[in-house]
Design a protein around this nucleic acid. Structure first.
Lengths: 125, 125, 125, 125
DNA sequence: GTGGTCTAGACCACA
DNA sequence: GTGGTCTAGACCACA
């Protein structure tokens, strides 16, 4: 059921975990009131240290996204989807700007977009 | 004339410098045989330590992109543009995949693409 | 009839329970020979696990403050009030020292003391 | 120059460090713009692990009390003294309430207060 | 079983 | 020199 970590990424592992959890909440894979996996089980699944997951969860609590239930685990509180997606789109815009700066043409990027999104149902031309 | 560093990025500063240099070579802003700025001046411009720029240049030399001219500075050797742009597009594809996974619709991304690439040829409005 | 637990305190719940029981003995609310509430009922009242109350009682027995009556429950044995209060005052002194170190004036603390201890005999206003 | 940790306290070490730093800012021992000791040197002084100090500093940054300067260290930003002292006094009130509940008389506490504050200059009677 | 804290030590980036 | 992250493992409290 669980996701994986990119150990080659510059993004620290605990931040990757935070993003994944947020993503799963936004997409409804983790619903409000549900328990996220225990620190130790997620750490084991991801091949990561307990402290790393612990830090991710702790920060999500500070952000009001998770809640800790004594002796039981972490529960989903909620997440401002609007804001989460807004940030993601902002990152996307930044990357597109960079790519434009690198001289890559619009069509290249649109092509990839269509490929990823499967083609037919999304493309007009 | 010089670029800037995103100190909040997870991408290490020396890697950001490498990427910028490469980008300027690919886009022709730095031509083969031209001198890149001296380590001292670039470090000053960017507000970073000499060691950081030094490391970026050193690695660019190892990659065959720059060449040291003893006592004079670093000169552009060349760069496999195909490969550079290929990597960039690969990163783009990865990000699009993530965004799709977050439930963001094709249209949202295409809209941003059009915005960034200016109006006329791509946008209808 | 029973007290409450501060779940936000750093003091472990089982220690809070021990302190409360001791306090009630010292103040005569629990007299020698009286039964303290059963583990089950106290756990229920406080909203904590049986094990937690159990641990508190067990340690109080080890300290000679409670005694197990097989099949009946836990009975108050007694408590060195002098020592109990001495510890409390020691903690108070420590806290006052810290507050003095923080630059808080004598009058502020005395004011709070008077407030808590009610008006007439101590306060002028 | 530095403080010490109470390893027997229930208060986690990283929280003790946070409180000490705050206290030193409030009392002017650490002024705005000054560097706090480096993570590693403080860890060594206190006989504590680097990660523990690191967590304390990191949380102080989140609270806007410290600021991190890349490659240089942590700098004092500022602290709402009013709020800090208010919290301290609240803790004091709570403790006094408990002590009153334990049957300790006003005079005992006032006596300790006077002792700690040196007597003459503060006491009226 | 759950989380919380801490240690000893490693490796990296930046000044 | 500075901070940042991570691991492996320990010990504790609570359900």
């Amino acid at each position: 059921m669980w996701f994986s970590i990119d150990f080659n990424s510059h993004v620290p592992v605990y931040k990757q975990i935070k993003e994944k959890i947020k993503s799963m909440i936004v997409t409804g894979k983790l619903k409000k009131g549900a328990f996220v996996p225990s620190i130790r089980s997620l750490a084991k699944d991801l091949g990561v240290n307990l402290n790393t997951v612990s830090r991710a969860y702790r920060e999500l609590v500070l952000e009001g996204i998770l809640k800790v239930v004594r002796g039981e685990g972490y529960v989903v509180e909620g997440l401002d989807a609007e804001r989460f997606l807004g940030k993601k789109l902002e990152e996307f815009r930044k990357m597109v700007l960079t790519l434009k700066g690198d001289g890559i043409e619009y069509e290249k990027l649109e092509g990839i977009l269509r490929e990823v999104y499967g083609g037919e149902e999304n493309a007009e031309s």
